[in-house]
Amino acid sequence: MLEVDNIEKYFGDIQLLYGVYLKAKEGEVTGILGSNGCGKSTLLKIIFGALKSKYKLIKLDGEVIQKKLYTTRLVKYLPQHNFIPDFMSIRKALQLYQISEVDFKSFFVEEGFDMLQKFGHLSGGQRRIVEVFLTIKTPSRISLLDEPFSHISPGQVAAIKALIQTEKQHKIIVITDHLYREITEVSDAIYLIKNGSSKRIQQLSELEDYNYISQGSL
């Protein structure tokens, strides 16, 4: 279990996050919702260890993690931007992420990727879905996914959802996206970031109550 508590983040004199709490379990997908600029991406970066915060408490299986989480090699993080270098081939990336070409080809059965193709030569949608696949599929205890459904086709979204459901059986998955329906469909637990604080959502109707979505949108 991953437990995050008391996260406070300031940008200058402006406080963005106020004592955020979140708990994510192996076997579940934990979704984070919130309006643009509310701090969802900031929260994932703080958990990963790429961004400092004024206060934070991170525990894994009840043990406090004192160092940056990414240094434990237990976590993989999908940022919103492209992160595989343009010059790297798909084959080399698979080797680095410890993923077999058989698994890759079986997932992308309709794409027909050339394993020697460089990331810089892929289309934006192709590149994004390959990077999403690498982050989810690579061996790790924790996967942090920032907008994995954005800029990819509906068919690819469905494939990613299916992959997440398979991989969650043996890892902790925390996910956020502005496509809230995709998050509500794939998540077992949902948190809403509003006014800098986290609120555990027990029923989807609460998203209307908190004015995150308009009445009748569900």
Rank of each mutant, 00 (worst) to 15 (best):
I65D: 00
Q66S: 12
K68D: 10
K68H: 11
Y70H: 10
Y70T: 04
T71R: 13
L78G: 03
L78K: 06
P79Q: 04
N82K: 11
F83H: 11
P85A: 08
F87T: 11
F87L: 11
M88Q: 09
S89K: 13
I90S: 03
R91L: 12
A93F: 08
A93K: 05
L96M: 14
Y97L: 03
I99C: 08
E101Q: 15
D103E: 15
V109T: 09
E110I: 09
E111K: 11
F113R: 09
M115V: 12
L116E: 13
L116T: 12
G124M: 14
G125D: 08
Q126G: 03
Q126L: 11
Q126I: 05
R127N: 01
V130K: 07
E131P: 04
I136W: 03
K137G: 01
R141P: 09
S143N: 14
S143P: 00
L145A: 13
L145Y: 09
D146G: 05
P148T: 05
F149K: 04
I152V: 14
Q156V: 03
A158Y: 13
A158K: 14
A159S: 15
L163M: 12
I164E: 00
Q165D: 13
E167C: 14
K168G: 00
I172K: 03
V174P: 06
V174L: 12
I175E: 03
D177K: 05
H178V: 07
Y180I: 03
Y180T: 00
V186T: 07
S187L: 02
I190A: 01
S198F: 01
